[in-house]
Computed example of a mutant assay.
Amino acid sequence: MTESTITQLQPMPDDWQRALAVVAHPDDLEYGCSAAIAAWTEAGREISYVLATRGEAGIDTVEPERCGPLREREQRASAAVVGVSAVEFLGHRDGVIEYGTALRRDIAAAIRRYRPELVITLNHRDTWGGVAWNTPDHVAVGRATLDAAGDAGNRWIFPELVEQGLEPWNGVRWVAVAGSTTPTHAVDAAPGLERGIRSLLEHRAYIEALTDEDPETYVRNFLTGIAREVGKRFGDKPAVAFELFPR
């Protein structure tokens, strides 16, 4: 396929002020999405993070009782690098998150608390491009987030949330899925790429357990490689891709 026949990605909408990112684990956002978040916060937009778990099952050599607090600290430090101060953990068990009404309720409650116009999540499909199996946690949280964007605006689905003081929020205009192999939109990664790299590097304990490569070399090569590849469909400039679902 020649360059002229490659389907180009559209620019992400920019007429919004608040976004909420909902993912399963610490580091999920940093693997390719945080450069966009850095650019958005630099432009004055408000981004908050909600994580279903604390990532306590993510490091084989560290037992969950120590791993959870460690990864929570790394996530808060990582978020601060890209200008995010609101980081919430829902307390679901890492590795065994179950898709269902309990998860939808927790995410809908978060959407009502933060009242975003844009919701961001991670690939909810079974595979990454049909060649690598996705994790059950990613699938469950991604799918529940797409559903909860609607649940948040309907007072009759989880009426107990109203009793808790969380009024319906029907202001979500889009759900953007990062890591999708069928993206539709993109954000220029250049303004936020260096902060995105530093943000992922804050997950040092996780990265050091993941690879024997020098952490900075690993992170820089990984993120710049993805940004360059996406950029082939976005004016040949480094970019972060999303699959955008309007509401």
Rank of each mutant, 00 (worst) to 15 (best):
D27H: 13
D137N: 10
P26Q: 10
G235W: 04
V172L: 01
A140V: 08
Y31S: 13
Y31W: 13
T53G: 05
E63W: 08
P238I: 10
R112E: 02
L122D: 07
A57T: 11
I226T: 12
A140G: 09
F234E: 05
P183R: 08
E63D: 15
T5W: 10
R143W: 02
V219F: 07
P191K: 06
V62T: 12
H138E: 12
S85V: 05
P69N: 01
A38D: 10
G171Y: 05
L146G: 11
T182N: 12
D28H: 12
W156P: 03
A79H: 03
A148T: 05
G192F: 04
E74G: 11
F234Y: 15
D28P: 08
F245P: 00
T145S: 08
T211K: 01
T181Q: 12
V230W: 03
R125C: 03
V172K: 06
T41I: 09
E72T: 13
L223K: 11
P159S: 03
G231V: 06
P246W: 09
A209S: 15
I47W: 02
E65L: 13
S85Y: 00
A132C: 04
Q8E: 13
Q75I: 02
E46N: 11
V230G: 12
W128M: 05
S180V: 10
A35D: 04
T101R: 14
L161P: 04
G55Q: 07
R112W: 06
